[in-house]
Simulated scan of single mutants.
Amino acid sequence: MPGDPDKPRFDVPVGLFEDVEDLKAQLAALTAQVQALTAAGGPDPGQTAADDTGGEGDEEDWKYPPFILLLESPEYDDELRALIEWVEGVLVPGYLGEPSADARWCPLWFEHPVAVARLHACWLAWQELTDPATCGYTGPSVWHRDHLDPCIRELRSPTGPMAGCTKGEHQIGHRLPIPVPSAYKSPTP
């Protein structure tokens, strides 16, 4: 009887069985890969199975984005130039209002190492979180909340790295702490 609820249905599309078999094969391959990686200690973070050639050039195949304070010339200069383009082309016109006593901004921000470090970190996050392929559509919101807002709040605060800079006056050394004598050195006679 066609309407018998106890009788199994055999009119399932053939393609469904093929899909199930494909999924089983993919699961078996992934399980084997996980077991092999676990037994071998796994690749370095960021390295995919396709990158794992076991040869000498592995480190050159994958590089993390460089943090600017860890670079030396000429790489530092190139990265700073790119950062300046982003800050002056995106950040300043889009997000910064007129500087004030409560919201500082130094036009020579690139001479303040703390500002360079914070803005570079914010820029690296922007590069990652504004690409829907890597972060979906919520990435820009996350970037604003977790990266831009805290960065700008710190940079523009009255105690931030630009605190000594006012309109027309630039002070680069205003945030350097006074050297504290080390407790580990014996006093010189």
Rank of each mutant, 00 (worst) to 15 (best):
D4V: 03
P5E: 01
D6G: 11
E18H: 05
D19M: 12
L23W: 02
A25E: 05
Q26N: 04
L27M: 03
L27P: 00
A28M: 09
A28E: 11
A29R: 08
L30C: 05
T31E: 05
A32Y: 14
T38L: 13
A40S: 15
P45H: 02
A49W: 07
G54V: 15
E56T: 02
E56C: 10
D58Y: 05
K63R: 14
F67Q: 12
L69F: 08
L71C: 08
P74Q: 12
P74E: 06
E75T: 15
Y76M: 14
D77S: 02
L80F: 05
L80M: 11
V87E: 04
E88I: 07
V92H: 03
G97L: 14
G97D: 13
P99G: 06
P99I: 08
D102F: 08
R104E: 01
C106G: 09
E111G: 11
P113A: 14
A115D: 13
A117N: 11
R118Y: 05
L119D: 13
L119N: 10
L124D: 09
P132L: 04
G139K: 04
W143T: 03
W143P: 11
D146Y: 15
P150W: 07
C151I: 12
L155Q: 01
P158Y: 02
T159G: 00
G160W: 00
Q171I: 08
G173R: 12
H174C: 06
R175V: 02
P177I: 12
S182N: 13
T188N: 15
